[in-house]
Write a protein that binds this DNA or RNA. Structure first.
Lengths: 215, 215
DNA sequence: CGAAACCTATCGATCGTCCGTTCGGCGGCC
DNA sequence: GGCCGCCGAACGGACGATCGATAGGTTTCG
């Protein structure tokens, strides 16, 4: 959405085509990945740009060649994360039918799968939000609000149509979201590898349906 | 209840009492309070001890006169926070009867009241945990585990006795705890002042009972 | 075809600032 | 006169950021 034409990958090192600039040291992507891991492990202020550069196997100057600075690195990471989450939710809802329970299940599935598959980014987005400078925070607040609205509209609709009987939709919404989001904090692929993600989705769908008191 | 300037023992400037050392500049308590607010607002690494000293209205040296350093300040804050939470839970459970639903309600009440009344400490304890050095972390991990066990034993017992019908007690436990803990992140006394805490307790008790599928 | 100009990805060195911590001293109440 | 609460100055190091240089590829052009 934002950070430029080369956000994904520098033109491939495809053999046949002419060799258009192949970052020798891994380039932008190596730095982004290193920043993601470092921010997740030690937090924004606990990570120095020297840590990031070292992890990427590049120099401090290479970092500044590819990115505007530490703050933009954080903002880009969070933006990409929220953006993907929103797209997943949107797609899940469009594929779902009209039944409130089915729509809630779709949103829970999208969220659980996202939290499991993007644990690292999830941690950053939730715990480093306050370290965004106002310019970035304002922009990203809108995206966050849009994702929240997906949940709110869905639950309000279910209540209005009598499918959900919970007395306080706002609290139900916060409880469901909090429960799903917390997965990123305790789920460890090594430890819970035996737990199939589809099982996890089923369990949290059942919990969510009970929270909204689906008849 | 808690963080008042005279919460501990430093005898107030009461006229009659007299002798025992009254810190002129607010002393230890002023620094602890300043550290709590700063850590909560900007995080451990985002806060400098100069920020803390300035906020307390004292010099950098005064901070070191009262505390061993930045890390000990954080550890003391978190320890006090967990310790009080555990004592509240323990008291609530001892006052509760034998009925699983009643015991769960007691634990939810203790947790919700705690998250609302100690929002600031709650934020620090949950988000600055990783910044504890190993020695402190190991000690505090035990306290955290004890609090989790309170929930786990209660829910397992309810399931064993047939009062709760949820298929996966561990997931129910994590969902309930996550929902209650999240309150500290969205509840604002100014905004939600009209919402009585007893109402909030009732709402979250209902949600918790639905999560564990109480018959 | 070859050279000169240009671009890209990277480097090492360096800037001024802020960090956590330490130390010696000083005024006022016992 | 000694201790208690507090201060200012200082230390070495790490921080985020900037700079000019360079190796090697690409384009331009005579």
């Amino acid at each position: 959405m934002s950070t430029g034409p080369l956000d994904d990958e520098p033109p491939g090192p495809a053999e046949a085509s002419g060799p258009p600039s192949v970052p020798r040291g891994g380039g932008r992507e190596a730095i982004t990945r290193a920043a993601r891991e470092s921010f997740a492990e030690r937090g924004y202020h606990g990570t120095s740009i020297r840590d990031i550069a070292r992890r990427a196997g590049l120099s401090l100057s290479a970092l500044y060649h590819w990115h505007a600075g530490k703050q933009e690195l954080l903002a880009a990471l969070i933006e990409e994360s929220i953006d993907e989450y929103f797209r997943r939710c949107d797609a899940a809802l469009r594929a779902a039918g009209d039944d409130p329970a089915g729509r809630l299940a779709a949103l829970v599935r999208a969220t659980v799968e996202y939290r499991v598959s993007r644990r690292v980014e999830s941690t950053i987005a939730t715990s480093e939000w306050r370290n965004l400078e106002p310019q970035h925070r304002e922009r990203l607040d809108g995206m966050r609000a849009a994702a929240t609205r997906l949940w709110a509209d869905l639950i309000d609709d279910g209540v209005a149509r009598g499918a959900f009987r919970c007395a306080h939709p706002g609290d139900a919404r916060r409880a469901v979201i909090a429960a799903c989001n917390a997965i990123a904090q305790w789920y460890e692929p090594h430890t819970h590898g035996g737990l199939d993600v589809t099982d996890l989705v089923d369990r949290y769908t059942a919990i969510a349906l009970r929270i909204v008191d689906c008849r």
